[in-house]
Nucleic acid binder design. Structure first.
Length: 488
RNA sequence: GGUACCGUGGCCGAGUGGCUAGGCGGUGGUCUGCAAAACCAUAUACGGCGGUUCGAAUCCGUCCGGUACCUCCA
């Protein structure tokens, strides 16, 4: 399987040729959501970024096992290890069973992902379903001497680990700096060093999610689940681990440390990190309280939104930027994306009615190659989309009789659009098709009436038909061959 | 303070030593009964200052401005 796919590997901070550990198989692990709130634009970006990775790897004929976890325990509240489990806290406030909260937000997350046309992962494991694996991992770390027990909790001994391995190899930090910069944080009494992180945490009386363990009735530390589940389903090491840039430190750094401490080897060959969505240049996130949920985008019901945006518009908007760049949210940018995307779909819809010629005035394969090399260059979707715009321009030119294409090349263009626009980029025209035949028939009748009015130079009637249809978001387009129509 | 990164035309956003990215918006034109759509043409650019080079938006230095991580976060 020869490809030229290059992936930017955060571990070495440059693009590398992608060489799977055991081709044609590829293991892909992505940090999924913590299900204690609705998905927002940032979640959408991460999911879409790695959806593209998944789709393109499959396009390249790899056999991909894609694991994306659901975090339903473990992440602690603010005061580091003093805090309460996020989901438990939410449950207490709402007087719900924790698993009720988990189920509620997991379902909502799935709905949003389906709306965005994000493919389902091969496996979607939950942290609460892998407590045993996580306990085993803690045992292995303890056995190798890289952890210590303290008052029923177990911590990772970063200083000890750093003597034998390198803590900070992913994030570019060093332990000396960390020592100086984490000293003042509260709630560190039980730990040898401030930067030591919890592997197992003893539950206090308020804590309603807990499990038995050799050390205490408690719950796993927050980096453990990905280490345990990644290894379980993808092996050690596996190919690609993805997530948001904000997870780079300490989460992914600690995953590397845990794997080395337990088994003496790095867990992952290629680390990929998507950048953040920003609002007025600032990260969109919970703590800044400036996030907009997917449902709010779809309904338009948010003070920052001047209109509703379809999930496909959001997907397209996200794909128009490279995943490693920050992407700034604005209504203007969303609206530009909406218009641009519909232009692509309109061009695609025209392919079926193009008139073939005996020769082609341009070479389709040039564009196909350009699309592949864009995707091979660290999944450069903006360039790929630019290529699709080039193609749609050509389609329109053929439609206008300004350039020529053979029947075979028209089919080739259709195939390229199908493959890249729909399969690889995962964009779908979203006009409902429930009443297609009826609508087509009605439109045929209406446009026939308008044609007659025009022939009679009854402009009042013909314009009224046009304007009324516009109110229904139906656009009439007069061409040399007669009127066409489409949904706006 | 430490670490990583960014500053591109009205807006969004690729590119990273020489060859117009692209989209939205603007302007002019073709088409049209008038529009719209489409097509054609076109303007507006690489934060400041130095340096390297035949040549820099792209490399180096420096200054200015901004962001992320170091606490849960996609």
């Amino acid at each position: 399987m020869e490809t030229h796919l290059h992936i930017y590997n955060t571990l070495v901070r440059k693009k590398q040729l992608f060489e799977p550990i055991a081709p044609p198989h590829v293991g892909l692990y992505v940090c999924g959501p913590t299900v204690y709130g609705d998905a927002h634009l940032g979640h959408a970006r991460s999911a879409i970024t790695f959806d593209i990775v998944y789709r393109y790897l499959k396009y390249l004929k790899y056999k991909v096992r894609y694991v994306r976890n659901i975090t339903d325990v473990g992440h602690l509240e603010n005061d580091a290890d003093e805090g309460e489990d996020k989901i438990a806290k939410k449950a207490r406030l709402d007087e719900l069973e924790p698993m009720e909260v988990v189920k509620y937000y997991t379902d909502r997350y799935h709905t949003n992902m389906d709306q965005l046309n994000v493919l389902h992962p091969s496996i979607e494991p939950t942290a609460s379903g892998h407590i045993i694996e996580q306990i085993e991992l803690v045992k292995a770390i303890l056995k190798n001497g890289y952890g210590y027990e303290s008052k029923g909790s177990v911590y990772f001994d970063v200083e000890k680990y750093n003597k034998d391995f390198q803590y900070g190899k992913l994030s570019g930090r060093n332990v000396e700096d960390l020592l100086q910069n984490t000293r003042q944080l509260a709630g560190q009494e039980d730990k040898k060093n401030g930067f030591d992180f919890a592997l197992w945490k003893k539950a206090d009386s308020r804590h309603i999610m807990h499990w038995p363990s050799p050390w205490s009735e408690g719950f796993p530390g927050w980096h453990l689940e990905c280490s345990a589940m990644g290894a379980k389903y993808l092996g050690e090491p596996f190919d690609i681990h993805g997530g948001g840039m904000d997870l780079l430190f300490p989460h992914h750094e600690s995953e590397i440390a845990q794997a080395n401490a337990a088994r003496g080897k790095d867990p992952v060959k290629y680390w990929m990190h998507n950048n953040m969505i920003t609002v007025n240049g600032q990260k969109m996130g919970k703590s800044l309280n400036n996030f907009i949920t997917m449902d709010e985008f779809i309904s338009g019901d948010h003070p920052a939104l001047t209109q509703a945006y379809s999930p496909m518009t959001i997907r397209f908007f996200i794909l128009q930027a490279h995943y490693r760049s920050t992407l700034d949210f604005s209504n203007e940018a969303l609206q530009a994306a909406e218009k641009g995307m519909s232009k692509l779909f309109e061009a695609f819809a025209l392919i079926g009615s193009l008139k073939p010629s005996n020769e082609s005035s341009f070479d389709i394969s040039v564009h196909l190659n350009a699309l592949e090399s864009a995707m091979n260059d660290d999944f450069n979707t903006p360039i790929a989309i630019a290529q699709l715009f080039e193609l749609s321009k050509l389609i329109n030119q053929v439609n206008d009789g300004k350039t020529k294409l053979t029947t075979a090349d028209i089919e080739k263009i259709r195939l390229v659009f199908n493959t890249f626009l729909f399969d690889v980029l995962g964009l779908l025209p979203e006009k409902g098709n429930q009443n297609d035949q009826l609508v087509d028939y009605l439109m045929e009748t209406i446009l026939e009436l308008r044609k007659q009015a025009k022939e009679n130079k009854d402009w009042t009637t013909s314009d009224r038909i046009r304007d009324d249809l516009a109110k229904l978001n139906i656009q009439v387009k007069d061409t040399k061959e007669g009127a066409r129509w489409s949904f706006k």
